[in-house]
């Protein structure tokens, strides 16, 4: 039988066998990703990430014990440029896009209390 590649299930269809992601896990991941999220968003993300991860777990059908991972499709390595210094970008230009700057430097909120 032809195994169609169009096997994507909708959220409703995968909910039954879903990998549960808790709102605490979501909040932890959001912190790692430096995203502020509300309680309501945490619940929404928990459901959506749970269904996407459940969907992704179909990869476990495949035995990949003896398969090398692909990080890059072309066989190239150690592309080096000549060890020669080149000019950087002009400071005034670079600072043009900074939200806040002073005396030629980017200004940020207090880092040390």
């Amino acid at each position: 039988m032809i195994n169609s590649i169009v096997s994507v299930r909708t959220i409703a269809e995968v909910t039954d066998t879903m990998t549960k992601i808790t709102t605490d896990e979501v909040k932890h991941v959001a912190h790692l990703a430096r995203l502020a999220i509300t309680e309501q968003e945490a619940e929404q993300f928990a459901e959506q990430l749970g269904s996407i991860i459940t969907f992704a777990e179909q990869l476990n059908e495949l035995d990949t014990d003896h398969v090398e991972p692909t990080t890059h499709v072309l066989e190239m390595k150690n592309i080096m440029r000549e060890d020669k210094s080149t000019g950087g970008l002009p400071r005034e230009e670079v600072l043009k896009n900074a939200p806040d700057h002073q005396d030629g430097q980017v200004k940020v909120p207090t880092i040390l209390e």
Partner: peptide, 27 residues
């Protein structure tokens, strides 16, 4: 949503199960 998914897939304890697995299937 994608930043969250990616951060989850790369986070400690899940890296092999999701990210590395996907790299192998890519092969």
């Amino acid at each position: 949503r994608r930043i969250m998914l990616g951060t989850y897939a790369l986070s400690s304890g899940y890296y092999d199960a999701y990210y590395k697995k996907a790299q192998k299937v890519r092969t």
